[in-house]
Amino acid sequence: MWQAFCDEFYLCFLKPAGDGSLRGEYLLRGLGVTLEVALFAILLGLVIGFLVAVIRSSHNKYGYFSFLNAVSKVYLTIIRGTPMVVQLLITYYIILKSVDSKVLIAILAFGINSGAYQAEILRAGIESIDPGQMEAGRALGLSYWRAMLKIILPQAVRNVLPALGNEFIVLMKDTSIVGYIALIDLAKGGDIIRSQTYSVYLPYLTVAAVYLMLVMTFTWLLGKLERHLRNTGADPVHNDS
C-alpha cells in the first residue's frame, strides 16, 4: 500500500518529463500562472469596477455622465449575460488574435469580466453611503471627485469588503478554464500529468488541495483585514455619525 503510493507519487511528480524537467514542475509553473492571471485580473477588475461604479452611481444620484453611463450599461449586460469561457475564446480567437502572450490575453479577459461584477458590488457600496457624507464634503469645499475619493469610496469599500473578497475567490477559481486557450495553469498542469501517467487520483486531488489552500489563505487574510478595520473603530456599518 505504502509502496504503491510512493510509486505513484514518483510517477506523477518526480519522474522527468519529456524535456528533462520533473513532472511536478507542471504544477509549480501552473500555480505561478494561476496566481499571475488571478492577481492582475483582480487589479484590472478593480480599476474598471471603480470607474464604472462611480459613473453609474453618479448618474443615478446626480444625473452626471449620461453617455458613459449608457456605455457602462451595455458593458455590464454583455459581460454578465455571456459565459466566461465564451468571453475567453472570443478574446483569444477574435479580439486579440494578434497578441502572442496567452497570459496577457487571460488577464485581459478575466479582468474585463470581473470588472463588471466588481462594479456592481462597489456601486451598491457607494449607494449605501448616507448622502449627508457627500454633502458634508462638498460643504467643506471639496470637489465632487475629491469627496468621492476621500470620503465616499473608503467607506463604500469597507462596507462591501466581504462581497468583494468573495468575487476575488470566484475569479481565482474561474481562471481554471484557461486550458481552453491552451494556457497551462494549475488545473491544466494536473491534467497534463494525468494524460502522461494515466494516473487520476494524485494529480487531480493535489490540484484540488492547492486551490483549497489558496482560497483558505485568502479568506483568512480577508478576515484579518475586516477585524482590523473593526478594531480601529472605523467600522462605518454600525455607525450613524
Partner: peptide
C-alpha cells in the same frame, strides 16, 4: 445629523 466622516 452632524455628518462626521465615520472612517476618520
Amino acid at each position: 445629523h452632524f455628518n462626521l466622516f465615520p472612517h476618520l
